[in-house]
Design a protein around this nucleic acid. Structure first.
Ligand SMILES: Nc1ncnc2c1ncn2[C@@H]1O[C@H](COP(=O)(O)OP(=O)(O)OP(=O)(O)O)[C@@H](O)[C@H]1O
Length: 744
DNA sequence: CATCCTTATTTTTTT
DNA sequence: AATAAGGATG
C-alpha cells in the first residue's frame, strides 16, 4: 500500500498523533495522501472507521474518496464520516435539531429561497425595495453570517443607513427562518458551530467520537468551518489538513486564506510536510503555471518539480471572435482524437463564466463532438424541479413558507398576488404560520367566496398528498406528486418544445429518485433525498467515464485532471474578470484561478482567446489577458494568424494604445491608472516577448539603506522603472530600479 | 387574475 | 441575446 507513495507522502500517511499540515503545490498527490492516510489509520493503526471524520470540497470528491479507501482496504468503508462541511453539519444538526429549536424535518434554503425570504421580510418591515436593493441586503446578511455574527451581535455604524437596514432585516430574517423550520446554507455551518459551542457535553461527546479529522482543500475553508474544526479538536489534536495557498479561489465566498497560513500557530506543535514533486503535468505545463502564479505577492514559496519530460509547448490561439475560438477548439479536438490517440473524455474546456459555454455548445453540435456541461444551470435549480421539490418540502415541513408560496399558484389555480397578500396580512396580524393563516383567512371571510374556494381546494390537495405520502415509498411518491398537482397536465397542455424539455427533466427527477431508493434502501427517506438535492454540488453529476468532452468553469475544475485542457477566453476583463479588478487581492485570486486551470492539464494545454467578443448583445474588442503576457514565449507555440503579442500588449494599455483603448475598449478606467501610465506590466515584453525587467513582484530585493524587502509592484521599464517595495517594519516605498539589487 | 407586450437587466465564480 | 420584471388590458 505504501509503495505507491514517495518518501514525504509516506511520512504524511504514517504520521501518528497531533496536528499535521500538508502544504503542497498542484498535482503533488495531496488527495492521494489523505486517502491513503485514512486507509492506513483503519488498517494498520486499528482506528475504528467511525472514529474518522474526513471533509472534502464536493460530494463527488467524498464519493470518490470513499471508493478509493474501500479499494485500498478491500472492504466497505461505510462507517467513515465522509462528506462536505455542509453535509456533515446538516447531519449533525438533524440529529440534534431540538437542541437548536428546530425539527429534524427542516428545509434547507438555497440562494434563491434566501433572496425570496429577504424580499418578503423587507415587505413586512416596510423597507423600500427601491432604495435598498434586496440582493444587496441579502449579500450583507451573508457577510454577517460569514463573520459568525448572530443578529444580536451585529453592531453597525449609526451613520450607515444601509447597514442599519440590513441588520434589521437580518433579525427578522432569522426569526422567519426559524418559524419556517428552515436553515440557509450558511446556517448549516453556523448552527453546527453554535450547537457545539453551547452544549459542552455534546462537544465532549464528538471530541471523543471523532478521533481523527482530515480536511482536503483546507485553503478554501471559511471562518465557520475553522471554528467547527477548533471545537472538534479541543481534546485530541489529531487534525490533518491538506491544501495549497496558491489554489485558494473562494475568497469572494468568505474563504479565509489565513486558515492555512496560520495553521502552525493555531494548532500548537503542528508538523508541516511539503510535497514538491508533481506527478500530473509535463514540465512545460508546470513552467507556464509557475510563470503565472509567481507574480502573486504574499504566497508561501513552493518549488514544484517533475520527472516527466518537457512535453509539448502550450498552444496559444487568438481567434477573431468567440465563434472562431470555438471552431479552433473543435478542430483541435477532432485532431487530438483522430491523430493523437486521445478520446473525448480526456479533454476538457474551461472558462471563467458559465455564459461562455454557448459558442462551444453550438460548435460541438455542428462538429459532432460529444460533450457534457458541468454545472451552470444546475439540475436541481431548474424551475420545474424546484417546483416539485417545493411540493415535497411542504409535505414534509408545512411551515416552509417560501416553498408554500412558490407552489400555491403553480400550476395556475387562481390564487394570485391579491389573495396571497391577504393571507399574509392575516398571518402577520394573528402571528400565525402561513399555512394556518390560509384556513384562518377563510374562516374570517377575509377572502372573496371564489378565492376562499380555491384556497380550500389547494389545502385539500396538499392534505391528501400528505396523507398518501405516509403510505408510499419515495419512488412512488414523486410521480404521484407530479401527476396529482396537475403539473404534468399543465406541461402537457403547453405542448411547446420547452415544455417537452421540462417533462423530460421531471422524468429525470423520477429516475434520480428511483436510483436513490435503490442505493440507499432503508435510508431512502424523503428528508434524506431533499437534503441531498439541496446540498448537491456542480461537479457531482459529472462522470469521467463518459466519453464526452467536459465543459466547465475553472472553479468547477478544482481538484480534477485531464490529459488535454483548453483554457479559453484568456482576455483582459474576462479573465481576470472586470468585476474582480478593483482590489489587488481580487486580481491575485484571479491569478490563482488561472493557476488552478493550467495545472489541471497533464499533457497538453491550450490557451485561447477571442479578439472580439459579444457581451450583452454587443460586440466588443478585447485584449489578451495579462496572464498570457506573463508566460515566457519559450513555453508557448502561438498558432494565431496574428500572434497575440504582435497585436498589442496584454494587460493594461500602454502609451501608444491609449487612443485605441479609450475609444474602443469601454471606459478604460480599469486599464489606466491616474497619470496615464500602463497599470500592468507583463513579465515578458508585449511585442518582443523578452523579459521586461529583472524585477518581478514578489521578488526579494536589496537596497543600500533599507536592507532587504519584497517587491509589491512595478511601473515602467528598465533602470527608470519605479518599484514599490515593502521593507519589514517600514511603510511601502517607491524606489527607482537602478538602486535595487535582486536577492536570491 | 391571467395574459400579452414593453422595459430593464444581466455575467463572475457556488457549497 | 436572453430573460426577468413591470405594466397595461381583457
Ligand atoms: N507517489 C505517486 N506516484 C505516482 N503518481 C502519483 C503519486 N502521487 C500522486 N500521483 C498522481 O498525481 C496526480 C495528482 O494527485 P492528486 O490529485 O492527489 O494531487 P493533488 O495534490 O490533490 O492535486 P491538486 O491540488 O492539483 O488538485 C494523480 O494522477 C495521482 O494519481
Amino acid at each position: 500500500m505504501l509503495d505507491v507513495l514517495n518518501p514525504p507522502q509516506r511520512d504524511a500517511v504514517l504520521h501518528g498523533e497531533g496536528p499535521l499540515l500538508i502544504l503542497a503545490g498542484a498535482g503533488s498527490g495531496k488527495t492521494r495522501v489523505i486517502t491513503h492516510r485514512i486507509a492506513h489509520l483503519v488498517r494498520a493503526a486499528g482506528v475504528a472507521p467511525d472514529a474518522i471524520l474526513a471533509v472534502t470540497f464536493t460530494n463527488k470528491a467524498a464519493q470518490e474518496m470513499r471508493e478509493r479507501v474501500e479499494k485500498l482496504l478491500g472492504y466497505s468503508a461505510g462507517r467513515i464520516h465522509l462528506g462536505t462541511f455542509h453535509a456533515i453539519c446538516a447531519r449533525l444538526i438533524r440529529r440534534h435539531a431540538d437542541a437548536l429549536g428546530f425539527k429534524a424535518s427542516f428545509s434547507i434554503y438555497d440562494s434563491a429561497d434566501q433572496l425570496a425570504l429577504v424580499k418578503q421580510v423587507m415587505k413586512d418591515l416596510n423597507v423600500n425595495a427601491e432604495r435598498f436593493v434586496p440582493a444587496a441586503v441579502h449579500a450583507a446578511i451573508g457577510r454577517f453570517k460569514q463573520d459568525l455574527l448572530d443578529p444580536k451581535q451585529v453592531v453597525v455604524d449609526g451613520r450607515d443607513v444601509f447597514a442599519q437596514v440590513a441588520a434589521r432585516v437580518y433579525e427578522s430574517y432569522q426569526i422567519k427562518l426559524k418559524e419556517a423550520n428552515a436553515l440557509d446554507f450558511d446556517d448549516l455551518l453556523n448552527f453546527a458551530v453554535r450547537l457545539l459551542q453551547e452544549d459542552a457535553a455534546l462537544r465532549a461527546r464528538y471530541n471523543e467520537a471523532w478521533e481523527y479529522i482530515l480536511v482536503d482543500e483546507y485553503q478554501d475553508t471559511n471562518k465557520a468551518q475553522y471554528a467547527f474544526l477548533r471545537l472538534l479538536t479541543e481534546r485530541r489534536h489529531n487534525i490533518c489538513v491538506v491544501g495549497d495557498d496558491d489554489q485558494s479561489i473562494y475568497r469572494w465566498r468568505g474563504a479565509n486564506l489565513q486558515n492555512i497560513l496560520d495553521f502552525e500557530k493555531d494548532f500548537q506543535g503542528a508538523r508541516v510536510i511539503k510535497l514538491e514533486q508533481n506527478y500530473r503535468s509535463s514540465e512545460n505545463i508546470l513552467s507556464v503555471a509557475h510563470n503565472v502564479i509567481s507574480r502573486n505577492v504574499g504566497r508561501k514559496a513552493k518549488k514544484l518539480w517533475t520527472d516527466a519530460e518537457a512535453g509539448e509547448r502550450t498552444i496559444v490561439y487568438a481567434a477573431e471572435t468567440e465563434k472562431r475560438e470555438a471552431q479552433f477548439v473543435a478542430d483541435e479536438i477532432a485532431a487530438l482524437v483522430s491523430h493523437q490517440g486521445l478520446s473525448f473524455g480526456d479533454i476538457a474546456i474551461f472558462y471563467r463564466t458559465n455564459a461562455q459555454s454557448r459558442p462551444f455548445e453550438s460548435q460541438f453540435v455542428l462538429s459532432n463532438i460529444p460533450y457534457t456541461i458541468v454545472g451552470g444551470l444546475r439540475f436541481y435549480e431548474r424551475k420545474e424541479i424546484k417546483d416539485i421539490l417545493a411540493y415535497l418540502r411542504v409535505l414534509l415541513n408545512p411551515g416552509d413558507e417560501i416553498s408554500l408560496q412558490r407552489i400555491i399558484n403553480v400550476p395556475r389555480r387562481g390564487i394570485g398576488d391579491e389573495t396571497v397578500g391577504k393571507i399574509r396580512g392575516v398571518s402577520l396580524q394573528r402571528r400565525l404560520p402561513f399555512w394556518e393563516a390560509m384556513r384562518e383567512a377563510m374562516r374570517l371571510k377575509a377572502l372573496s367566496i371564489a378565492a376562499a374556494g380555491r384556497v380550500g381546494d389547494f389545502l385539500e390537495l396538499v392534505g391528501s398528498l400528505r396523507e398518501t405520502a405516509s403510505t408510499m415509498t419515495l419512488a412512488q411518491l414523486v410521480p404521484m406528486v407530479i401527476e396529482k398537482t396537475g403539473y404534468w397536465a399543465m406541461l402537457n397542455a403547453e405542448g411547446t418544445e420547452e415544455a417537452k424539455d421540462r417533462i423530460e427533466n421531471l422524468q429525470g427527477l423520477v429516475n434520480e429518485v428511483v436510483e436513490f431508493a435503490r442505493v440507499y434502501g432503508e435510508d431512502a427517506t424523503l428528508d434524506n433525498f431533499l437534503e441531498r438535492a439541496s446540498l448537491a454540488s456542480d461537479v457531482d453529476e459529472f462522470s469521467e467515464s463518459r466519453e464526452r468532452v467536459a465543459l466547465m468553469t475553472v472553479h468547477a475544475a478544482k481538484g480534477l485532471e485531464f490529459p488535454a485542457v483548453f483554457l479559453t477566453g484568456m482576455e483582459e476583463q474576462l479573465f481576470p474578470h472586470s468585476r474582480a479588478m478593483d482590489a489587488p487581492e481580487d486580481i491575485e485570486e484571479e491569478r490563482r484561478l488561472a493557476y488552478v486551470g493550467i495545472t489541471r492539464a497533464r499533457r497538453r494545454l491550450y490557451l485561447t482567446l477571442a479578439r472580439s467578443r459579444m457581451v450583452f448583445g454587443q460586440t466588443k474588442a478585447t485584449r489578451p489577458s495579462r496572464f498570457l503576457g506573463d508566460v515566457s514565449p519559450s513555453y508557448l507555440d502561438d498558432r494565431s494568424a496574428i500572434p497575440f503579442r504582435a497585436a498589442g500588449p496584454s494587460g493594461g494599455f500602454r502609451f501608444g494604445a491609449r487612443q485605441l483603448g479609450a475609444t474602443r475598449f469601454g471606459s478604460g478606467e480599469e486599464a489606466f491608472d491616474g497619470d496615464g501610465e500602463p497599470s500592468y506590466e507583463p513579465t515578458y515584453d508585449a511585442e518582443t516577448g523578452e523579459a521586461a525587467s529583472p524585477f518581478q513582484p514578489g521578488m526579494k530585493v536589496f537596497h543600500p539603506s533599507f536592507g532587504v524587502g519584497k517587491i509589491v509592484s512595478i511601473v515602467g521599464q528598465g533602470e527608470e522603472a519605479k518599484v514599490t517595495v515593502l521593507f519589514p517594519g517600514a511603510p511601502m516605498k517607491k524606489i527607482m530600479a537602478r538602486f535595487l539589487q535582486p536577492v536570491n
